[in-house]
Design a protein around this nucleic acid. Structure first.
Lengths: 278, 278
DNA sequence: ACCAATATGGAACTACTAGTACAGAGTTAA
DNA sequence: TTAACTCTGTACTAGTAGTTCCATATTGGT
């Protein structure tokens, strides 16, 4: 009884519903699930029944109260949005010797990129680039088990643009002495996608305590570090159930590099040519 | 002001939101739009802010009350459900100027991915995955100045799946003694995008001389290493900008990881669980 | 056509939620 | 360091929504 969708419950219960209750049921199915998020009175009016009838209706579905029913609807909507199986309708899951594996993977990665574009506030992105391009203070970079390579990639490129970059090792043992130089106003960019790294969280807390300007790059489920962060750039990484794909995070990093370089060009161009010569 | 989506308003208003209000904004974007249908207190708890902050947040978005905001959310959801072809919610409304830099960059990255899908022969991709999944012999990994991070990323993931992985430093000084163990039939994966690395080319020549099975991952202009390679996977990286974008290469790497893991699952699953335990 | 049983909506009631004021925590500038 | 200011959460109030009860309408059986 627990795991059933509301729509399924309606179909099951339909036969024992009274005439007015059926009107309520049809009203809900007609524009599912939005009308269920409305107050009872509005639901009732739209379905052509009274509030009391709507209440009896949700009671028939097995919900203890109207808020309880709404909670179920919300969880269902969330589930549907988050599980990427919504598009598995067209893609047959894992056939052996799949010739178009790569095509499917790339298609999903494109979806991730699109969603990320919608998820990332342009102002946050721009703010970070401007800050990086200014080149003031020290900028610390840290990542988790896999995302550490992204931090490295970002560092390697930013080195061409500005001074004062330091890589941070989040492991507790080596962390303390790396932190002692952190000054208020320094920048710290932290990569954390699930499974979230506990030691990264500790490191972030300490950086926040030292008044560093904390930037978090994470996935759509939001690392708990978000709590400490001044700026959060969330990417969409969800793939089918097996693994997530960080391609969108990587692309964000490249966009950061490109934009920061563009902004810092007057200064950066000299730097770059002097590096290239050596 | 009327016809704007709630998400659009958030993006517009983001810059004038306070820290706690931004947490609320992110919370809503993270699981949009469901959390907005919850009571204020629940919204607040999930976003890590107080009820009062959430109220101030919706007020900033231009809604006269919380119920007013919820109504807008419902109408928006309805709208999206009713026009089925308009499903692409990825119409992120941005301000003028360079505020849409990120959008443009992502759009171009998507183009790169599409082109790459057309450029990479599925058979070559599959052949490499099968070879990696078999786990025979040693697999060497090397990259250039920036692509070395991609090699590292690939290595970190493949370690979960199979033994016998070694990172190769292409610098002449350290190269010789790393090469002495290379046996015929060993695999070598080399990343080389322009500007192509001379020392990588030398390393590739030597690997080929030692009869290693050489795999080249490169860009559409084809590194000269291609002449030594048994397998070539070319990605589209061109951008209309100063630098190229390696996002498609990264995505290829992730696809390799995913497919290889899938193929090697019977063996890999044991490996992974034993690693996770330690 | 009448009666019994059930369904229905209106109105009163209760509980909970949104809204508000305020105090203290945190931030910034002098 | 201090002082001014802004931000943020708590405690409270007012209002609105959900709930319940009951009179009325409707249905179905005899």
């Amino acid at each position: 009884m627990e795991g059933k969708t509301v729509a399924a419950r309606i179909h099951d219960a339909m036969h024992r519903l009274t005439a007015a209750e059926k009107r309520a049921a049809r009203g809900l199915l007609a524009n599912y699930p939005t009308i269920g998020f409305a107050p009872v009175a509005e639901f009732a009016a739209q379905a052509g029944a009274s509030s009391a009838t709507v209440l009896r209706f949700v009671s028939q579905l097995g919900y203890r109260s109207y808020p309880d029913f709404q909670r179920a609807l919300r969880e269902e909507l969330d589930e549907r949005a988050k599980s990427p199986l919504q598009r598995s309708q067209s893609a047959p899951p894992r056939q052996a010797g799949d010739a178009n594996f790569l095509d499917r993977f790339i298609t999903q990665s494109i979806d991730n990129l699109r969603s990320s574009a919608a998820l990332i506030p342009a102002s946050e992105f721009e703010a970070l680039c401007v800050r990086l391009a200014e080149g003031k203070g020290t900028c610390y970079l840290a990542g988790g088990r896999f995302t550490d390579f992204l931090a490295g990639y970002l560092e390697a490129h930013l080195r061409l643009v500005r001074p004062g970059l330091r890589r941070l090792d989040a492991r507790p043992a080596t962390r303390a002495d790396q932190m002692i130089d952190v000054k208020p106003g320094d920048t710290a960019i932290i990569f954390d996608v699930r499974r979230y790294d506990a030691s990264l969280l500790e490191a972030a807390a300490e950086l926040a305590a030292r008044r560093a300007f904390l930037v978090l790059i994470t996935d759509e489920w939001m690392s708990p570090i978000a709590r400490h962060a001044k700026l959060v750039l969330p990417c969409h990484t969800g793939l089918d159930r097996t693994w997530d794909a960080n391609g969108s995070v990587f692309t964000l990093v490249e966009a950061l590099i490109a934009r920061t370089t563009e902004l810092a060009w007057p200064v950066a161009s000299k730097r770059i040519s002097s590096i290239e010569r050596s």
